[in-house]
């Protein structure tokens, strides 16, 4: 059995320690920047939505600035954004490379993305529910907590799922400019040293990761939709 594997994927088995290390780095990058993006992106989306014209916290200038911030950061291809963020990363994290160096670009790449996803999720909450809450004397903050965020749980979960999946994608891209992780591993060995079994192994691992995230997301959506 072992021989069979060895003949199929000799380089993967030879560098299995490094592969494992790369996987751990990817998981670290995804979970740390994912958590930060969640904490920043969801409130960002809530304000993006509620400051809109006719929203419960209507505020034109604030909405304009947030919306433009979103558009600008979402239109920059991630590879360029990562290069652009190197300076800021050195300033805040003290480094532009490795897992630590990848956090800042990843957060800047995903917060506007999750923000828009959250905005869309809140837009799906029927306006009538908000009106009903207002007629019962609810304040804007109560409406955000007790109506919007609660009613939009399935929609926000969908948004978070897509965001984490693209985050996994982004970490692979960040790997090409020295962030470490699976992307870096595949570029260095699979591409650099022409060891195709490594590239294939990385792809399979990423497919498994993405499928697991999607399955978890779909399960939560199912459980929270009534």
């Amino acid at each position: 059995m072992a021989e069979v594997f060895y003949s199929w994927i000799p380089n993967v088995i030879e560098r299995s320690d490094q592969l494992l290390e790369a996987l751990v780095q990817t998981l670290q990058m995804v979970s740390i920047s994912g958590l930060i993006s969640l904490l920043l992106g969801i409130p960002f989306g809530v304000f993006l939505f509620t400051t809109k014209n006719g929203g419960i916290l209507q505020n034109r200038p604030v909405h304009f600035v947030m919306s433009k911030f979103c558009d600008i950061f979402r239109s920059i291809p991630f590879i360029l954004l990562a290069i652009l963020m190197l300076g800021l990363s050195r300033l805040i994290m003290g480094t532009g490379i490795g897992v630590k160096g990848a956090i800042i670009p990843l957060v800047f790449g995903t917060v506007p993305y999750l923000g828009r996803q959250t905005e869309n999720a809140l837009a799906e909450v029927p306006a009538g529910m908000i009106e009903a809450a207002q007629s019962m004397g609810a304040s804007p903050w109560e409406i955000i907590w007790r109506v919007y965020l609660r009613e939009a749980i399935p929609g926000i979960t969908r948004g978070v799922t897509i965001t984490i999946i693209s985050l996994i994608n982004f970490t692979a891209v960040a790997g090409t400019i020295g962030a470490g992780g699976l992307g870096n591993f595949a570029i260095m060995y699979g591409h650099g040293k022409t060891l195709p079994d490594i590239t294939v192994a990385v792809i399979v691992i990423i497919i498994v990761l993405v499928s697991a995230v999607q399955a978890a997301g779909s399960w939560i959506v199912k459980k929270t939709t009534h």
Binding site: P126, G128, M129, E131, A132, S135, M136, V147, R150, E151, I153, T224, H226
Partner: peptide, 13 residues
């Protein structure tokens, strides 16, 4: 002042 609506507007969750 209570209010009821055509579309009921109950909280689905």
């Amino acid at each position: 002042i209570g209010m009821i609506f055509q579309q009921f507007n109950l909280f689905a969750s």
